[in-house]
């Protein structure tokens, strides 16, 4: 009986990757959707027209999101102020004795701040736009293009917010990080992971009536696997451990990010229709 065996899982990462690759291949084969191939191999000359159009569409949509954000700067500034004031509240709550803070508390606090910032800033990605305008996009763009552009744009937004947040956090709370480049790497992985998961959840929540409550209860349990892995990687970076000891986690995080993005692209068209 297999379940009694001890070591059938020695290939645990293989399982994740195989699943991701399977989903990708399935999707490419089914929809002739060459964007994933396109990203991996830009020298591929035999692009069909639809692939080129897809790429242009995503580019145009990201452009639109950035312009929209830039025109109404209060939203971006609001999020920046949100993260800065949260960090400052934490700083004051510890009664300024931040040098007595243990590294594990320092790390966990930072990620929880990032989590709440991510939930708040990504929740608005579907609520911000008016119903009429969404209908207008519906006639213009493909759903795959829309979800990909939203994911990429939210990743960029989260990257800006979390790097700014990290800078300010390090200034007021002290910076005990041993391996700074790995820590920044984990922040980048976190920004991509949070935004890809939360964009899909925001799309689901925006369809319901009490979407802000729903956003929280739908997203928190779903985000936990990513958060746990991030905490582990960043704790390793904080302690300045050998890079090899966090390779497993980084690998798994990349696989989860990939799976979530592919799943979102597959499932979003059904959400978009309604």
């Amino acid at each position: 009986m297999e379940i009694f065996e001890h070591d059938i899982y020695h290939s645990k990462y293989y399982l994740v990757f195989e699943f991701g690759v399977y989903l990708c291949c399935n999707f490419v084969a089914r929809k002739n959707f060459g964007l994933i191939l396109f990203v991996f191999d830009r020298s591929l000359e035999k692009q069909t027209l639809s692939e080129k159009l897809m790429f242009q569409e995503v580019k145009a949509l990201i452009n639109k999101e950035v312009k929209l954000e830039w025109r109404q700067k209060y939203a971006l500034n609001g999020m920046l102020l949100y993260i800065v004031s949260t960090v400052y509240i934490c700083y004051l709550s510890f009664k300024l004795k931040t040098n007595e803070l243990k590294p594990i508390t320092w790390n966990t606090l930072f990620w929880i701040i990032l989590l709440f910032t991510a939930v708040n800033s990504i929740a608005k990605s579907f609520q911000q736009e008016k119903h009429g305008r969404l209908l207008y996009y519906y006639t213009l763009a493909s759903p795959e293009g829309i979800i990909l552009s939203k994911i990429i744009y939210n990743s960029l937004l989260m990257l800006v917010l979390s790097l700014a947040g990290f800078g300010f956090y390090a200034i007021v709370m002290g910076n005990p990080v041993g391996d700074i480049s790995l820590y920044l790497g984990s922040i980048i992985l976190g920004a991509v992971g949070f935004s890809s998961t939360l964009t899909m959840i925001a799309g689901i929540a925006s369809k319901a009536d009490n979407s802000s409550t729903l956003m929280a209860i739908l997203s928190f349990p779903v985000i936990i696997p990513i958060l746990l892995l991030l905490l582990k990687v960043s704790k390793n970076a904080l302690d300045g451990l050998d890079r090899g000891s966090s390779a497993d986690e980084v690998f798994t995080l990349l696989a989860i990010d990939l799976i979530v993005v592919v799943l979102s692209v597959i499932l979003f068209p059904y959400l978009w229709k309604s």
Partner: peptide, 27 residues
């Protein structure tokens, strides 16, 4: 709408659940 959106969430959540119970405990 309820059917379609909850189906989307069910699939999405199931995959995350698989990651949770099959991969994370092994680490």
């Amino acid at each position: 709408q309820r059917g379609r959106i909850s189906a989307v969430y069910n699939i999405f959540a199931f995959v995350i659940f698989m990651v949770l119970i099959w991969i994370l405990p092994r680490m």
